[in-house]
Design a binder for these strands. Structure first.
Lengths: 312, 312
DNA sequence: TGTTGGCACTCATATACTTTAAGTGCTAAC
DNA sequence: GTTAGCACTTAAAGTATATGAGTGCCAACA
């Protein structure tokens, strides 16, 4: 069925109201709150048709309507308006994002801002096509090295390697050279593999030290997911009026790779909206994910998503 | 009133039961669960006496008893047993704490472990008497510097300074020297003041660059609080069966300096237990804080506390 | 023919009332 | 001094009823 203008308006209202209240939406509510110029009876008739074609659902006969997965999808694809930011939001963003630190820090700030503005947790993952530009090693003390990884895209990662034995300065230099020779130009994505190769190739010359350094690096580069969310704001959402629901949600978020794998499958397009029940993942079924791929000028790819509860 | 053995046992049981269930405790529950060899009537009589001398409270006439602040205090000071760790816990700790990274990382791991084992959020603050040993600057790119602060105690902090202008290598060296000359030997606590002095003294020679570097350092050293807590476990505690209580708690935690100022006042002793209602702070009244001062071999002082809800 | 007012119907939620069970305090007996 | 027993209290659980937000459908209307 092709939806006429009125049906679209009604579907829009149902989706928007349900998102803010997490309660089934009735015909009168829509008429009053969204100032539609039709009587509640007309709206009821339309809602019935919308239900028959699968855009809406009814929890029970005397309750209002709730959008179905199909309804959400239609809303997202056809009806959603670009909500302009208020002056207040713009100010908040301007004040929150300062430009100190490297590119990664900047994105972390952005994720935090998104999280605050939407009152939704934001998950930031880095999927970098960036190449390693150089490795520097700073000798902190006899047994402590600071290893700095610099990428062509301007990201800096560093980690500390605690050694079991003292290390002479010349070994530090040699190690720096070896690492640079073997790793420069490697995509950050493949650094793990490259590191393993280095160990294989050079372990004889440096024994344990090399292993300890590579371990530290591996640990550092593996932690590339950042979750921003403030507990109070999430608990204030109407959908979490019940603790069990909040617990479920926290649980789902903790199972981080759920979101990861779900996103792997749906990569086309810049801004993606995944409605939980569209995926096979049961834990996700009551939530939706809004995802955004951001590609920085230096081919440094990022993703940034925000989770939001749907049904209660 | 001096408490005899039986009264002590009963008070103990009430406190322990209330901590795990967050429900008022009755005489029969105590008899059954804690295998006391007195009849419920005897226990009732004793409880009444305990209430009269202020160790217990009764929410209403037909309910069980709840420990009062005095009761908690007595329990903590006289009755609390050293609970030995189970083999399972010991294994968990052994596996969780690896020794990579610097001292600070180690403490972060420890805080996480404490948080998991107790299902309580853990807040870690660093109150360092440690002295700065040296400052190193790594030039990452023309406009990006990595500044590394190394303390005598083996802590490494680093931060990135993004410059507005290109910086020549010799300036980097000069800056490194200036910072070392002025800052080495400063207690980390006073670094902020020392940095301001440096800016005042040397700003003419280095103009903006120095300011940008010092700003980055200040930002880095000011973030010395780490909160570990997993949302799911906290939401599973019986005291947070009601969302509003959980929200309150999250709120209280977010107001971080509450805990800080409360702890400032009570510094004596290694292991401290602060019962919320003993402090003037209203927000704290339903919680208790367990605090531990850990002094590392290198005079590097740390604190580590854990919060736990009391009344509901 | 599309729209609307009206009405009978449904059902979750709210309210009022009752029952139950966990708890107490007190007394008399051991 | 301890305990069994009993009357009493009260929160919570259960039950019945009322309320109201919602629906579907029909007849009247523009």
């Amino acid at each position: 069925m092709k939806l006429d203008d009125r049906k679209k308006k009604i579907l829009s209202s149902v989706v928007e109201d349900y998102i803010t209240t997490a309660e089934p939406v009735g015909s009168k509510t829509i008429m009053d709150k969204y100032h539609l110029e039709y009587s509640s009876a007309t709206i009821r008739n339309e809602m019935k048709l919308l239900e028959e074609s699968g855009y809406l659902e009814q929890p029970h006969i005397s309750a209002g309507r709730v959008p179905s997965t199909k309804g959400y999808r239609y809303y997202v694809d056809n009806l959603m308006k670009n909500n302009n930011l208020s002056m207040l939001d713009i100010n908040y963003i301007d004040n929150s994002i300062t430009s100190y630190g490297d590119t990664e820090k900047l994105f972390e700030q952005a994720a935090e801002v998104v999280s605050k503005l939407l009152s939704r947790p934001t998950l930031l993952t880095f999927k970098s096509e960036d190449l390693l530009e150089s490795v520097k090693i700073v000798k902190v003390s006899e047994k402590l090295l600071l290893i700095v990884l610099i990428s062509q895209g301007g990201t800096v990662k560093d980690c500390i390697a605690k050694l079991t034995d003292n290390i002479p300065d010349e070994t530090v230099n040699e190690l720096t050279n070896v690492l640079n020779e073997n790793l420069v130009g490697t995509p950050l994505e493949n650094l793990n593999i490259a590191l393993n190769k280095v160990i294989e190739k050079e372990l004889k010359s440096f024994s344990f030290v090399l292993g300890q350094i590579c371990d530290s690096i591996k640990r550092e580069i593996s932690s590339t997911k950042k979750l921003s969310s403030s507990v109070e704001t999430i608990l204030s959402l109407p959908e979490f009026a019940d603790v069990d629901k909040a617990k479920n949600f926290a649980n789902m978020l903790a199972t981080k790779n759920i979101i990861d794998t779900t996103l792997e499958k749906t990569q086309e397009g810049e801004l993606g909206i995944i409605i939980g029940s569209e995926s096979q993942e049961l834990l996700l079924k009551d939530y939706s994910i809004i995802s955004l791929n951001i590609e920085t000028e230096d081919k440094h790819l990022r993703k940034n998503f925000c989770n939001k509860s749907k049904k209660n």
